[in-house]
């Protein structure tokens, strides 16, 4: 089973990388390699990430003090390097982590608990300190401080399932979703642009997409804009933006 767990860790690492948490992603790829030293995908991804982080560090070192006005809502503009096409693909919704990974009480641990829960482990629901809701909220706040809005949204969705009426959950989720959407939309660029599929149909079937990404991809026919895709996907804006950003990141589509 270590190979299976390692693969799950790679998936989760890719997930974190999309949400901008490169350090977290590197940590997971490292763990995957510890479990399965022959995992080529983990090794390649780790190498890519390290070269990218190195390039970033070098760039930062050359720039001197941190630049004011380059962070925050402008999102992708502030990125020093954009993700390269041709990276292995991932499925955003299928983040499953094995038992016993991640530092206690961090976001990854909570995601792992989500996995355990599916396997039937009883959970304690409540609002007091130490309750699952509280842990989720603290985890989400930690991730938000680290600008990991994607991870925070996942935790807050879980939290909202537990306490649908909780205003703190609602407010946090709203905030993190809005920020995440803004980041993903910035990655897409002008939403009036019409994206095109770069790959031939024969190549598309070899991608690793889920049916929702398949649906969005099928709508991209050279006539509909990103804005239109948000309308016709039938999914939330966040889910659609995630899929489009993923397709763009992986070089499946290009902005027109």
């Amino acid at each position: 089973m270590p190979q299976h767990r390692a693969n799950q860790l790679v998936e989760a690492g890719l997930w974190l990388r999309l949400s901008g948490d490169s350090d977290g992603a590197a940590r997971l790829f490292d763990r995957a390699l510890q479990l399965d030293p022959d995992n080529g995908r983990a090794r390649d991804l780790m190498a890519q990430l390290q070269s990218r982080l190195g390039a970033t560090d070098d760039a930062r070192a050359g720039e001197g003090p941190p630049l004011a006005g380059l962070e925050g809502d402008w999102g992708a503009w502030a990125e020093v390097t954009a993700p390269e096409p041709g990276d292995p693909l991932f499925v955003p919704d299928a983040v499953l982590l094995p038992d016993g990974v991640g530092a206690p009480k961090d976001a990854l641990d909570l995601l792992a608990r989500d996995h355990r829960r599916h396997e039937g482990e009883p959970v304690r629901v409540g609002r007091g300190p130490g309750s699952e809701l509280d842990v989720l909220l603290r985890g989400a706040e930690d991730l938000l401080e680290l600008d990991d809005h994607s991870g925070a949204v996942d935790l807050l969705r879980r939290a909202q399932e537990l306490a649908p009426e909780e205003p703190r959950v609602e407010a946090l989720r709203d905030r993190s979703e809005r920020t995440l959407i803004a980041m993903l939309e910035a990655k897409l660029g002008d939403l009036g642009h019409v994206p095109r599929v770069r790959l031939r149909p024969d190549d598309i079937i070899w991608l690793n997409l889920d049916h929702r990404a398949g649906f969005v991809l099928a709508q991209i026919d050279g006539t509909v804009s990103y804005d239109d895709l948000f309308s016709l996907s039938g999914m939330t804006r966040l889910d659609t933006a995630r899929i489009l950003a993923q397709l763009l990141d992986e070089g499946v589509i290009v902005a027109g």
Binding site: P201, I204, I205, L209, D210, H211, G214, F215, L217, A218
Partner: peptide, 8 residues
């Protein structure tokens, strides 16, 4: 008729 990733 080609519908890739039609369902999970």
């Amino acid at each position: 008729v080609s519908l890739p990733f039609i369902c999970t």
